[in-house]
Design a protein around this nucleic acid. Sequence first.
DNA 1: GGCGGGCGTTGAACCGATTCAGTCTTCCCG
DNA 2: CGGGAAGACTGAATCGGTTCAACGCCCGCC
Lengths: 334, 334
Amino acid sequence: MAAAPNIREVALLAGVSVGTVSNVLNRPELVAEPTRDRVNAAIAELGFVRNDSARQLRVGRSRTLGLVVLDVANPFFTDVARGVEDTANQHGLAVILCNTDEDPAKEASHLDLLAEMRVQGVLINPIDTDGRLTALRERGIPVVLFDRLGDPALECSVAVDDTLGGRLAATHLIESGHRSILFVGGPRSLRQVQERYEGAAEVVAADGSAELTVLPTTALNVAAGRAAGDQIAARGRDTLPSAVFCANDLLALGVLQALTHAGLRVPGDVAIVGYDDIDFAAAAAVPLSSVRQPRQQLGRTAAELLLAETTEDDHEHRQVVFEPELVVRESSTR
Amino acid sequence: MAAAPNIREVALLAGVSVGTVSNVLNRPELVAEPTRDRVNAAIAELGFVRNDSARQLRVGRSRTLGLVVLDVANPFFTDVARGVEDTANQHGLAVILCNTDEDPAKEASHLDLLAEMRVQGVLINPIDTDGRLTALRERGIPVVLFDRLGDPALECSVAVDDTLGGRLAATHLIESGHRSILFVGGPRSLRQVQERYEGAAEVVAADGSAELTVLPTTALNVAAGRAAGDQIAARGRDTLPSAVFCANDLLALGVLQALTHAGLRVPGDVAIVGYDDIDFAAAAAVPLSSVRQPRQQLGRTAAELLLAETTEDDHEHRQVVFEPELVVRESSTR
DNA sequence: GGCGGGCGTTGAACCGATTCAGTCTTCCCG
DNA sequence: CGGGAAGACTGAATCGGTTCAACGCCCGCC
């Protein structure tokens, strides 16, 4: 394997100067056609591939963008990542993916690496909002928050209205005749969980005739949902809630599974509404009603805001808030 | 936001030469302690961040690694990606994620970009095996295939023994007393699908008393599974297979849903075995039996092979084949 | 006293693409 | 026929770390 040829060797072979080769690569319209053909032939013959670090060094910025998420294994982030990638690719940018596992130390070290790489910007669902992010901004690297609103003086952000989502779910259940609703979710310290609960609580309070109770969980995964479902099933028929609203679909799937196991019918005995509308919600044995978040859209928009910030000279930070949408399926219809 | 300070300004402030600053950054043990402290203080004061492209240009290789998958939205690839990322991070490398959507043109353009970035190597589940990959190798960029074996003369590869997986599933079903087994999966052009089928067919043929039929699908997702399930349910009780073996869990979830819908009991009327053991398999309303692939392990191993190839001077390409494992759950036990 | 060796530091060359001021042609028009 | 402008191309300076040969210095040893 021969050493990678550089632009000088291409110039030599084509009988032109390096400047011309560079022009062929970057502004081909400036170069006369016969010359351009000769250069392209030389490039093909040598198998020349532009060295991006040299280009970057000269130009000052890279062609990558950092995406920092809590966990790619969560389908929610996966879909966001798809949106980001699609938009980035359209603009010739590559995406560097980082998982933080909700660990501030991992978050910090990833951000340091991204700063060294001079990424065009960072899209992040932050844990430790202020530590490194301020530093990044000071270094001139734009930051866009997603799934959480930031300070509009400092950065752009994209989120979904979780309070509205909670209201949608509760309204649907009340209109379907449910009077005792159980909210399953936690930890409450997560903004999303808290706001979804508050939205539901608001609607229930306004109605007057219904009541909302809470069953806290320690995590937002299927196992925690199963545990919650077991607790619900253990209550005995007369103290069952008539409907359960879960803080996300993973919980809802767990609850569904535990209730079915215990011989309870969904939605006959207990209705269930989840949140996120991940693909598996529709694929559950009893298809789950769920509050849909425009996940890919979230990712695309975040990426677009970032690109806007890098190109506009008089950029004003924006906050985009999407509205969730209720998708009613079998788990909440009688 | 001030322009990013460079190593020269740090040197000036600390009263040393640029060479010394570089040594503090890369081989601190060569620098006397008081000098080192002065330099570190200057770095902190200026908020200096090393410019990785300059470093890369000089050193010749980057600190990133490319991961090219068919679709991040598939939980299988997500878990592989986690494994890759964990290993890469341990070695101070960042991961650039690319989706190909099974489109050779997207694959090619991603590989071109990765080549320009001079990534340390590429991990790929290739569609178009030979086109660009040969070119990459010629440019000296190591390639590791995963979920598919390559030519051991050319590259390392990591895969799971899909024939064995098929044998495990069929053996389990036959031993549970099933005599008419239906294989659901497609397109047959996918190596994985074909081998899983062949493994099952082998066992069935050896047994003699059982029979294996095939219901082809055009894709490996939940919707295709539902369609297949509807077809099966339409057959009428006496011609039902007693067990269904699906080429992956997404199909199995779809089949499960359609059968349940049609009033058939799983596993009472029809048993189901899936493949992959994605997290949602255990969480289905009837927990799915499935053939588990060591997904994170696959990713970690692929990354390790790549690192080995970049560090060892007398590297020999290896092929690692993992053994899948059958996880029996409710969907196939009476 | 002289010599060798180790330690700490220096500073210029280097990596490879981009950019831009400048040169050389050619052609048009008065 | 001369002036001027447009078009095509050149080549050196530049980006910012890294590396390494070379240097100064001090210490210990014969």
